[in-house]
Simulated scan of single mutants.
Amino acid sequence: MISIKNLSKLFQLKQQQIQAVDDVSLDINKGEIFGVIGYSGAGKSTFVRLINRLEEPTDGDVSIHNEDITKMSNHQLRKKRQKIGMIFQHFNLLWSRTVYENIAFPLEIAGVPRTERKVKVLELIELVGLSGRENAYPSQLSGGQKQRVGIARALANDPEVLLCDEATSALDPETTDDILELLVSINKKLGLTIILITHEMHVIQKICNRVAVMENGRVVETGDVLDVFVKPQSETTRRFVQQLNPLEYEKDRLSSFINEDSTSEVIKLHFVGNHAKQALISQVIKQFDIDVNILQGSIAPTQEGAYGTLFVEINGKESVLKEAISFIENAGVEVEVLHDVE
């Protein structure tokens, strides 16, 4: 669907050069929600603006449906942009126009007849949950409602791709979740490919299928969201994952439970996907002559399934502890022994 090859952007500021995007290559599948995450200055917003040439790339290619937009003339690019919707952090609405008029604006530019415009605009207003607010002005809307207008406007020309540049960063957590649910609904109903730029791991976790992590203009890690969360490879990714699952990095705090008594072990259990739904601890207690003390744990959902971490202390004979750990591993749960069984 979208093929990005060796994409770069170099800004020349007086006597200083800034490499905002550095040799990025990605393939994004049709109909998926693809997240790009990075801290401030990572180059992610510049990257997304290169996809529709709001910024001109210094080098590299961007192809959408096998059409290289970096080679298009201005006339060809204007037509192609009608199929690339974009929503922004600060909404970018026309403040002198009503909700209806804001959504109708791209259709006016495209030369769509008035009767067809009306039908399309009313469909979109219903789709984004703004029925009854057609005649309101942006100043009369909440932040979430303004973003819903921005989404409807971006969908006006039936785009193939929707680019979201920090679309929820200006919203409170509850409104953010509402907008994310709307994006998932639109993705499913319209089969729309969504590229979502954010610095919030919660956003990636909630709706994305795959993610690319950016640092200093480069992609340092990419993969399925669940895989990246479970086994982050880069330090930047580990910092983001820690925001959602701090227990992953709190092993040192459990040192008070770890002792030299061979009848006691502290283990970390890592549940992924359907394994997170198993009543595994109760099975272990029933099957083995051990005591189990749950120390702490957490679980988080993603689009590809749940993942969770559980720290437990197990007490019993050395041979029985080994059998219990083997049983847990055979159930498909990753086990890390924080105090090795002798």
Rank of each mutant, 00 (worst) to 15 (best):
M1A: 12
I2V: 14
S8G: 08
L10N: 09
Q12P: 00
V21C: 06
I28Q: 08
T46P: 03
L50E: 02
N52W: 07
R53H: 10
T58A: 03
G60N: 05
D61L: 02
S73M: 08
H75G: 00
K80E: 12
K80A: 15
K80C: 00
R81G: 05
K83N: 14
G85N: 09
I87R: 12
L93I: 05
W95L: 14
S96Y: 06
S96R: 13
A104K: 14
V119K: 14
E134I: 03
N135M: 07
A136R: 13
A136K: 12
A152I: 08
A156P: 11
D158K: 14
V161M: 08
E166T: 08
E166A: 11
T168A: 03
I179M: 04
L180F: 05
V184I: 14
I194H: 08
E221L: 07
L226I: 15
V228M: 05
S234M: 06
S234E: 13
Q243K: 14
I258C: 12
D261C: 01
T263Q: 13
T263Y: 03
K268H: 09
F271M: 08
V272W: 03
V272N: 01
K277R: 14
Q278I: 13
S282E: 13
V284Y: 11
G297D: 08
G305N: 13
A306E: 13
G308H: 09
T309S: 03
F311P: 07
N315M: 10
G316A: 09
N330D: 10
V337L: 03
H339Y: 01
